[in-house]
Write a protein that binds this DNA or RNA. Structure first.
Lengths: 208, 208
DNA sequence: GTCTATATCGGGATAGAC
DNA sequence: GTCTATCCCGATATAGAC
């Protein structure tokens, strides 16, 4: 019992590491087994095949991300406070686990229909999150732009540089240490950028 | 001669399609051969192995992207005009070839050292582009924030939603037609957002 | 240059003993 | 539950004829 729980946990941790870093096609069952300290046969004993293990890993990753977003944006605060917390949390979290988002995006790109089911099985209601953001945009900032655009703007500013980290480093020849500084700087930069960007959407803004 | 050129072209087109959509690990030499209307042996005659063919495809894709960016941002216009053109161009181009950026990002994530060489062999000078943006930010808008942050902000707002398209569609249950509308809307939305976001960086801005 | 045939190997999956 | 041994297919790559 105790042993089986241990094994299960070890498998999931190993699978997570390998799938997150190498994706479905790049991952090897052998590598997962090695990392978990067991052999392939036992891996198949717990998860009939690679697909099912992958789905489990995807489900965990997606759930973790989505839950945290829900937690932040459905809480009781002003929208700008939520955005500030979101930016700080994700720039901390993601820069340590940059591969997670890329993993989710790639997984969904490779097998959209299959994983859509996985997503729907969770009891998240992302529409609620949008409604809440829309409501706060209207009431607190007099903005009635589609909240999805705003949400995507925020995500883009925070998430894209993490995804593109290797690209940015290669193009501009930036060493790792400087990238750490870069991400730390972004907390302030992005917050300011969003705060001001939103002003353009205010109903009575002369620029619109 | 004529025939060989034709074959070479067919191979590159086929390889591009397959690699862009499925990445290195997901791509099959057989599929590329089929798509090019030849067989595997001939494929290996032109490109000794999968790696070399992949590098060629990566080089082409990266070069195409980088050149277009250079062309836009090194031209003779105001920075805001460039940004407007960039947004329109990329939201048109990328929404038709969404996989290209994802392909580049994934490739660079999988084999950063190997592809860094490929990038350096091209005669692009990305630092020049940053310098130019920095100069225009200072002279035209009185902003002396690191131009890399601004550049990344712009890219994030434009590129991220394309990368995350399947994610967005799955989460919020958005059909394809509505996504087309969404991307069309973003041209205006993002332009406004950036224009106003930049105001926060002006030296004499009371908010900073 | 282009083909058919084949070598070779790696990786997912299963059988069956303990 | 955990292991060893093995099956079997798919994929890259090469040999060699035309």
């Amino acid at each position: 019992m105790d042993n089986s729980q241990n094994t299960e946990v070890k498998i999931l941790e190993a699978a997570r590491d390998v799938f997150h870093h190498k994706g479905f096609n790049g991952a090897r069952m052998q590598e997962i087994a090695d990392l978990a300290g067991i052999n392939k046969a036992l891996l198949h004993y717990y998860y009939r095949n690679k697909e099912s293990l992958f789905e489990r890993v995807f489900n965990d990753a997606f759930s973790q991300m989505a839950c945290k977003m829900n937690e932040i944006f459905l809480s009781e605060m002003t929208l700008m406070s939520k955005i500030g917390i979101f930016i700080n949390f994700y720039l901390n979290f993601i820069s340590r686990h940059s591969y997670v988002v890329q993993f989710i995006i790639n997984a969904l790109h490779d097998k959209p229909e299959q994983l859509r089911e996985v997503i729907l099985k969770q009891n998240l209601v992302p529409e609620l999150l949008l409604k809440q953001i829309g409501k706060q945009l209207r009431e607190e900032m007099d903005i009635d732009t589609d909240p999805l655009h705003i949400y995507v703007n925020i995500l883009g500013l925070v998430v894209f540089p993490v995804l593109a980290k290797p690209l940015i480093q290669s193009m501009f020849q930036i060493p790792d240490e400087k990238m750490d500084v870069f991400f730390e700087q972004r907390k302030k930069i992005v917050t300011t950028f969003i705060a001001n960007g939103l002003k353009g959407y205010e109903k009575n803004n002369s620029l619109v």
